[in-house]
């Protein structure tokens, strides 16, 4: 029988040392909500598991001296969703985390894992896109910081090298005048992988008028994508329910979905538009015409 070695490092240096030793034969595990499924289905067959669950440097949620929020990679979806500082300064991320999987998955799965897995349907990622977060990575050559949009390279492909670990994400706070939302369309209300998801953040000083609009879609392209065409369009006009519907249709410009067991390409394209429109409508900042 093949043996699987399990190592439980107590520091980031020890973790990196183990990664260096095992190289590509190792898999890093935290909550395991993605990896264990892959192991079971034999999509991955590592010789060693490096359980980073006890590494102190990558846990906790705190405000940085620079005024950002730092979220350690080990923070679970449940922790992020209930964090006071996240709810106050990046509510879109708290909302997204609250809609991941089920209570059990939210109690196990981590934000670092959601990022490292790099699924285009990962629910925290569109929120991190519109927050313009950055990913802190550590490896044998030291620390580096990658803007969230540059981190993802394709389905399950990211800028993370095999000998690196995600330390955490740095999230700039949204100002008081910003409004935001996260919505996902799933096949059911819980334990659902997104057919389409959308995150929105925009500065709104008076109803219907937005500046600095950021919109990101999940599950409609090889990676999560910013919908820059719509973003620009929304900044240039006054939003009422009618114009919101019209503008939302521009979402298709940045979406190149595929057909899979959850939904067809055509449905996903339309849903990207409609989910954005529904979000804008229900946000309450779109002035009635």
């Amino acid at each position: 029988m093949t043996r699987l070695h399990v190592a439980i490092p107590e520091s980031i240096d020890e973790a990196l040392g183990l990664l260096g030793k095992w190289g590509r034969e190792a898999a890093v595990i935290a909550g395991g909500t993605d990896l264990v499924v892959e192991l079971k289905d034999r999509l991955k067959s590592p010789k060693a598991l490096i359980d980073i669950g006890r590494v102190p440097e990558i846990s906790g949620i705190r405000e940085t001296e620079g005024g950002d929020v730092w979220i350690g990679a080990l923070s679970t979806h449940a922790e992020v969703a209930s964090s006071t500082v996240v709810k106050e300064t990046a509510p879109v991320l708290a909302d997204a985390c609250a809609q991941v999987g089920s209570p059990q998955i939210r109690n196990r799965g981590t934000i670092g894992g959601n990022i490292s897995t790099a699924s285009p349907a990962g629910d925290t990622i569109p929120a991190l896109y519109v927050l313009e977060a950055s990913v802190e990575i550590i490896g044998p050559k030291g620390k580096r910081v990658v803007p969230i949009e540059s981190f993802f390279q394709g389905p399950k492909k990211s800028a993370l090298a095999f000998d690196e670990i995600v330390l955490g994400v740095k999230v700039p706070k949204l100002g008081k005048e910003y409004v935001s939302f996260f919505r996902k369309l799933g096949q059911r209300k819980s334990l659902a992988i997104s057919i389409v998801s959308v995150a929105f953040a925009g500065r709104c000083q008076e109803p219907g008028l937005f500046t600095d609009v950021r919109i990101a879609f999940g599950a409609v392209a090889p990676t999560v994508v910013r919908a820059r065409t719509v973003e620009k369009a929304i900044c240039n006009m006054k939003l009422d329910p009618k114009s919101a519907q019209y503008i939302s249709k521009l979402a298709f410009r940045d979406c190149v979905p595929i057909t899979d067991v959850r939904g067809s390409q055509g449905y996903r394209e339309v849903m990207a538009c409609n989910l954005l429109y529904e979000g804008l409508l229900e946000m309450g900042r779109v002035r009635k015409a």
Binding site: S102, Q187, K189, S190, L191, I193, V261
Partner: peptide
């Protein structure tokens, strides 16, 4: 194609 409860969609308590 739907080999597990992730793709075979049973209603959950929330549904």
């Amino acid at each position: 194609l739907t080999r597990n409860f992730s793709t075979y969609i049973l209603p959950t308590s929330l549904d």
